[in-house]
Write a protein that binds this DNA or RNA. Structure first.
Lengths: 191, 191, 191, 191
DNA sequence: AATGAATGAGTTTTCATTCAT
DNA sequence: CATGAATGAAAACTCATTCAT
């Protein structure tokens, strides 16, 4: 009935969003065609536009998806009692993703960089929001930790992550993630 | 005759390289057409192919150009007697470029990220080389400074730069460069 | 039950027809999508096809609707005792619509012109019929007036209307309607 | 050499313009694809964009072409000593085109009507200019004739032409052109 | 070497129409 | 009857690359 239809439709939208998140991350926004995403989602090209009016909408959905993934991770970490442990858990998660990072970079970072070159239209803001979400969570942990200038520390942490992801990617060396990850862990310990 | 021809030709190649470096940085590789670069260089489109066989060649030239700019900077810094001062001079130069970084990101970093998504063909290697050049110079300074693990320190420094550039760009806030720049300076002082 | 259903269905059909008449006039046949008409009528897109098998059918309905509007006007004018007064009433009605005409042209005229370019299929005939209806009514008035060649006079009158509507529209000047309307009134007076 | 190349290029542009003028008139702006025009001109589709950046540019070129045709006609008529004869020559030319008008309408009139529905972008102005050119020439003749309100008379003449073209087209009856043409000739005689 | 012009494949987007429920 | 969803065929436009002089 309407229900099963709706369920199918919602599922398809989700499939498209997931496909967009994955493919855009791996191939980059400009090198990914709508057809690529459609194929990855198992949806006919023409039908994609029923769910997303423009390619930019798909990029935005991908950004939102990556943000949601991040939210799920931080929600999980929020269950830890110690803010320092939470931050270290985050770093550990980053390092755990080292192969992906070395191959494709950080999803949010690379998307933000690409989106920045696109015609203005609010996409930059979506990317900035994703980044701020991460910064905000980190700052909250530093605040709970009692660190002075929690925003500054959050910036340092996230910049460290983006920098190590970019270098790992440029050099195709997952080891960079491990090395810098360790340094960040030690730094967090020292606070 | 041959000389002036050669001079003209060399000049054109240089103009094209410079234009490529600028435009590719500002608009991104995928959003820049050969015609864009040709126009910026004041060279007819058809003529570009006498100097660069493919678009990838132009990207490579741009990468080389940015590396050369970096080389000029480090050569300048090499005249300082103190390795610490040299590293701090580098950071100061980065911070001085904060508006550009906030607008377009670090040239080498953004190009490396974009190049990574392109079809394989050695371009990645060019980007990696540019990154390694910077890492190498920094490591040398740390070595002269007597720091243990100079490579690791270089990695940390450059990752810090790439991270702060990316965040400044994503957030469109030059202030990020200043803030993190100060932190890097303090860190160098503490070594 | 069946009655109210039928009533609802008939109402929907009427809403669609009215929406088609308005939107097709304002946006033009080719620039109007079925979705546009559906939305203007408050009917789900998929449902439109229960009432109109093709887009051409909707265009035809719009043409019929505009003809009906015209019929209502001429029926009203038919109550005037003097045929000359009826014709002048018609001209007055045209002039009263001058802003709409300057913005979108005469509905029947613009639709006829567009329909003429579409694949053959009887639509032309619908447009021609609408035009002939107007010509016929006018000719009848001229006949009652005792004018010689009433068909010719009708042609002159309607051509005058179509011409002034087209010019008013092309120049976006409602004043054209007033100016030529006055001339037509004087002409009718002179007969 | 460059010359023959340039000649070829200019010729191609002319061919495209002529093809655009013809095809857009016959099939209408919205029903004509770039491929249609390219084919009519014997030019590969992709190459069209070297000469005309957008479809709108092609429409504008067609409008200009039709205006040029009109200019050629009026220039010819300008050689007649009597302004009344010039105006009657214009009407005669219209009537001579009656089959085309009955089949496709007046080029300028139909283009103006279609262009009016397109996204704004100056095309309306091009159409209005074409119409004003005709109006201006006619007004000049009436002025020389010593008629009072030459602008008004010009409007009446051109509106008459547009109206009869539209009706002839809608009814597919070239006879309308002849009939109304005769009336216009008589009217000019009576002034 | 220089250069305006050509080419053809690819991309995003729109839409009339159909279908499954 | 109702309706959200599907589909596939265009269409406009872009561009790296090549070619004829």
């Amino acid at each position: 009935m309407t229900d099963s239809r709706a369920a199918t439709a919602a599922a398809k939208r989700r499939r498209l969003t997931a496909a967009a998140a994955t493919v855009l991350h791996q191939k980059g926004v400009e090198r990914t065609s709508i057809a690529d995403i459609a194929q990855a989602a198992g949806v006919p090209v023409g039908n994609v536009y029923y769910y997303f009016k423009t390619k930019d909408d798909l990029v935005e959905a991908a950004l939102t998806e990556h943000t949601a993934t991040l939210d799920a991770l931080t929600a999980e970490l929020d269950r830890l009692p110690d803010p320092r442990a939470r931050l270290q858990g985050l770093v550990a998660a980053w390092v755990a993703q080292r192969d992906t990072a070395a191959r494709y970079g950080c999803p949010i970072g690379t998307l933000a960089a690409e989106v920045d070159k696109r015609d203005p239209g609010g996409l930059d803001e979506s990317a900035a929001r994703a980044v701020r979400r991460l910064l905000g969570w980190a700052a909250e942990q530093f605040r709970e930790l009692g660190t002075e200038d929690p925003d500054g520390h959050a910036l340092t942490l996230v910049a460290g992550y983006q920098g190590m992801s970019l270098l790992a990617n440029a050099l195709r060396e997952p080891g960079v993630m491990a090395r810098e990850g360790d340094r960040l862990l030690a730094w967090l310990d020292s606070l």
